[in-house]
Write a protein that binds this DNA or RNA. Structure first.
Length: 598
DNA sequence: AGCACGCCGACT
DNA sequence: GTCGGCGTGCTC
């Protein structure tokens, strides 16, 4: 007769706590219980039961919150594996698998019982598949038969990177799978989420965002990750994780088929394809050529260049539609004194204030705080304040003046009659294939490339290639760096760029070859923070890690706290990952373990 | 992660 | 004097 329950509580502690089980209280593994933890009532999860405990004076379990287990033994093993992969405790992952409704001390009665987790039949491990095709509709056509097949005996889960994308896809899938379809994402209200969760434990087709992977059905037979290359699959909050890591792990746990699907693979996925660990089914088209307009043809200083004006004029005359792409919202980007050139900064962050056209106040892009602005510059006491910098609305204004007769719209206000449409990269969150335009003009390619990290070139490649699908005639990109290696590969077979990128990543031991661990330190006192960052740098170097930094984070100051980061570069090894985790724990820092697959 | 305890500096 | 900052340690 078990008298001790080993209980996980949702705190950042890699530990379970023992509680005594009062006589008569029915408790099973996987049940939620109410316990007194450190003087407060908390929901805990029974991870194990035994006759005795190493500890004396155990507190008793207050009550059982479930009549049957909420989580299975498999969930426990899954959470354990996740906690080994990431520097976060098992308990945190376990609680992620519970709908938030069950993370609270809600008693669940017998009538609300879940369908029990039957042992899933063991099947042969399946080869993972990568489906490469231009549009969602085309890819869906390719993976739909697999979903149909799997629903005969079990469930399928399809993940989407963003809600807008999920909603668009749902409209398509509803026609084919109405009776099986369930939608899971974090915007759903707690009670509705719980109800959907209960109803989707078996024989369901779940469409979900990143969180849905933690709410997989018991009889899962297929995982599809749509738009596999999306950065949204990496959660930049605790517990940091990458959906692709989790999907691979889950597929192995469940012997499920795994399909990654997108227009272009991420580099991690490409490595798996190259290493023959995944099969590539390439149904993509060679794609149209992207026209590169270099510095010799337009002045770098001019955002709206004469070349662009001429191209747009030609399109208007031919009654064709053009999309002008500029990835910065609003009208201006900063506020500057007309006389001395002083730029107004947020008093809590290192960001430039932006002029709010509605309230004529300065707004910080990082903390969103508003600040009243003086009429005259307080520095030189002469100049007036000027709304400067290029946001997409300023470009819109210039084009309106240039083409008063043409119908010019923002992406939101576009219609079939629009001749010039101004858009940020949000055009990409709409399903390609439903709407196309004649020509596109990317004015800020250099801003994408200027990002000071190793992924800038690859991300820019994906951005331009994705954009390309929206245009029937041409996509033109303006750049002052026409010699940059990215442009050499833009119109060649996609694999050539991938191979070039892989070569340089391998040489420098960057992902997907090595792993990168980023540690961000924050404090109000800049000098003290720098000292601490340098101290940590030395400590890590003593432990023979390859460390870089301290580097200033962007923004350097956020909500009154300065931020420095250290980066550890290490070979892709499970043991090393664990060692880093342990060392960081000893040094009392929590880190972000970034980018990995498998 | 919270939260309590305890040691130092600054200030109604 | 004491209020409150945050370093340290503990949770069955």
């Amino acid at each position: 007769m078990p008298e001790t329950a080993h209980i996980a509580v949702p705190i950042a502690l890699d530990k379970e706590f023992d509680y005594s089980v009062p006589a008569g209280l029915k408790i099973k593994k996987g049940m939620r219980v109410l316990v007194d933890f450190n003087g407060r009532k908390r929901v805990g999860l029974v991870v194990d039961l035994s006759a005795r405990s190493k500890f004396k004076n155990l507190k008793p379990v207050i009550e059982a919150l479930d009549s049957e287990p909420s989580l299975s033994k498999e969930h426990m093993q899954f959470a354990l594996s996740l906690s080994r992969m990431y520097p976060y405790p098992k308990a945190e992952f376990l609680f992620m698998m519970l709908p938030s409704y069950l993370r609270k001390a809600k008693k669940i009665s017998l009538s609300q019982n879940l369908p029990q987790a039957g042992e899933k039949e063991k099947t042969a491990p399946q080869k993972n598949l990568f489906i490469k095709a231009d549009s969602f509709l085309e890819r869906y056509r390719l993976w739909k038969p697999v979903v149909e097949e799997k629903l005969k005996t079990g469930s399928a889960l399809v993940c989407f990177p963003q809600l807008s994308y999920l909603e668009a896809a749902r409209q398509v899938l509803e026609k084919d799978f109405a009776s099986h379809l369930k939608v899971i994402h974090s915007q759903i209200k707690e009670k509705d989420f719980f109800n959907t969760w209960r109803q989707s434990r078996v024989n369901s087709l779940i469409l979900g965002t990143r969180v849905s992977i933690f709410h997989y059905p018991y009889d899962l037979g297929l995982i599809v990750v749509e738009e596999e290359n999306s950065p949204y699959y990496f959660q930049e909050e605790k517990p940091y994780h990458n959906l692709l890591d989790v999907a691979f792990l889950l597929a192995r746990f469940k012997d499920s088929a795994l399909i990654l699907s997108s227009d272009f693979p991420s580099l991690s996925a490409y490595k798996l394809i190259r290493d023959k660990e995944m099969i590539l089914r390439d149904n993509s088209s060679p794609g149209k050529n992207i026209k590169v307009i270099g510095a010799s043809e337009y002045s770098k200083k001019k955002v709206v260049s004469p070349v662009l004006i001429e191209l747009l004029r030609k399109n208007i005359q031919a009654k064709k539609s053009s999309v002008v792409l500029w990835n910065k919202k609003g009208f201006g980007r900063f506020i500057r004194c007309s006389a001395c050139g002083h730029i107004f900064k947020c008093s809590h962050c290192s960001g430039f204030l932006r002029l709010s056209l509605k309230s004529s106040e300065g707004v910080c892009p990082y903390c969103q705080k508003k600040e009243a602005l003086p009429k005259i510059c307080p520095h030189c006491k002469k100049g007036y304040l000027k709304n400067s910098g290029w946001g997409i609305e300023r470009i819109e204004g210039i084009l309106r003046k240039e083409f008063p007769e043409a119908k010019i719209n923002t992406w939101e206000s576009r219609g079939p009659e629009s001749k010039i449409i101004l858009s940020t990269s949000k055009i990409l969150s709409f399903l390609y294939g439903k709407e196309t335009f004649d020509s596109g003009y990317v004015l800020d390619t250099d801003h994408f490339l200027a990002r000071a990290d190793y992924e800038a070139a690859f991300d820019t490649f994906l951005y331009l290639k994705k954009l390309c699908f929206f245009f029937k005639e041409e996509l033109c990109v303006f750049t002052g760096n026409g010699q940059y290696y990215l442009f050499k590969y833009l119109n060649k077979d996609w694999k050539e760029f991938y191979e070039a990128e892989m070569g340089f990543r391998e040489k420098l031991n960057l992902p997907p070859f090595g792993i990168i661990v980023k540690i961000t330190l924050r404090a109000k006192d800049k000098n003290n923070l720098l000292k601490q960052a340098q101290y940590l740098y030395n400590k890590l170097e003593e432990k023979k890690y390859q460390v870089y930094g301290p580097l200033e984070e962007e923004p350097f100051k956020l909500r009154d706290k300065f931020r420095y980061s250290l980066v550890i570069k290490a070979p892709r090894s499970f043991a090393l990952r664990k060692a880093i985790k342990e060392d960081l724990k000893k040094l009392r820092v929590s880190a972000q373990m970034a980018v990995s697959l498998k």
